Amino acid sequence: MGQHAASAPDAGNAPATGAGGAAGIVVRTAGPADAAALREIAAAALTLDAPEAPELVASLSSPPAGRRWTALVTADLGGVVFASVSQRDPSVGHIDLLAVRPEARDAGRGRALVAAAEDWLRAEGAAEARFAGNPPCYAWPGIDVRYTAAAALAESLGYERHDVAWNMTASLGADTDLSTDADVARLAEAGVTVHAAGPGDRAGLDTVLAFIREHWNDNWAWEAEHAGGCHYAARGSEILGFAAWGARPAWFGPMGTAPAARGLGVGRVLLRRCLADQRAAGQENAEIGWVGPLRFYSRAAGARAERVFWLYRRALR
């Protein structure tokens, strides 16, 4: 399943022996035939992410072109770990997902999987390992603090907590006001129009992607291109802002507005348009991932800070 360099170690020939590994637990590289089992492991272990946990496996298995990554699984299919190397900084490796079936815990599988992932990262030239998201294709910003066993494992292996991130939750119930008509009319008076980019407007989407690359980065552009929906605001041929949802199942983001659009209320309209799409798709809530401005999302959509993630790192010696 992974895109492995020729020098990648074959973890399937012997018990995991990396730092912190558990003797006797065999870890091997996952293959296409393991896809269904990996999804089942995720569904059983990642209860805070139900029902989309299996989709995290699918997402991490289809990362951006050029990403070096691997999926490793215990021989008894009790646990799985995904690891990747940052394209922005090849010295940094990421442990993207770690999941062990509830009935298979407390036997060293988590330690063995992390050890095998670290061995793979070392072979790929990484000098540091992080329990932190590797944008643009990631499961979480870090370890959800409610997955306490994972945080405890990271700390017991010498990882240091170096940052914190959070997600907000926006209710998409019928009583949540996601109206935009009045704002759209006001923007139209200022010469600003709002559009949905997608299959029916590929030219518009390409223009939005160019706008994102100019003002932000390729990571956000990749997320917008792989999103379930994308909306943008324009004044003539000038793009003023965009918002996307669904690049990570059930999540909103990314979004951004150009300096020329600040104060116009463009962000509020684009956010609400995306959330309305998510509601129409049957979602009861939307997660706003890796949030910066709490106040904006709280005021624009009644969102509340709810998921907290600890980001961990340690040197690979």
Rank of each mutant, 00 (worst) to 15 (best):
A115I: 05
L60G: 05
Y138S: 00
R130I: 00
G198S: 09
G263L: 13
G204D: 08
A71I: 02
N285L: 12
A303Y: 03
R122P: 00
V145I: 15
A188P: 05
D89K: 11
L178M: 02
E223S: 04
V26H: 11
G31C: 05
S86P: 04
W290R: 07
A174N: 12
S84N: 07
A44S: 08
R262M: 09
Y147I: 00
H231C: 11
E160V: 14
G173W: 10
I25G: 09
L271G: 07
D49L: 12
M168P: 04
E189T: 12
A22Q: 15
L294T: 10
I212P: 00
A132T: 06
G158T: 09
A258W: 05
G204M: 11
A22T: 15
S7N: 14
G125R: 01
E287Q: 12
E223D: 10
G282A: 11
D144F: 12
G229V: 15
G125A: 04
G236S: 11
A210C: 07
W245V: 13
P63W: 05
M1K: 07
G204F: 08
I288T: 02
L275K: 08
C230E: 02
S62N: 13
A14S: 14
A243Q: 04
A16I: 10
L97M: 14
C230R: 01
T29M: 09
A37N: 05
A188I: 02
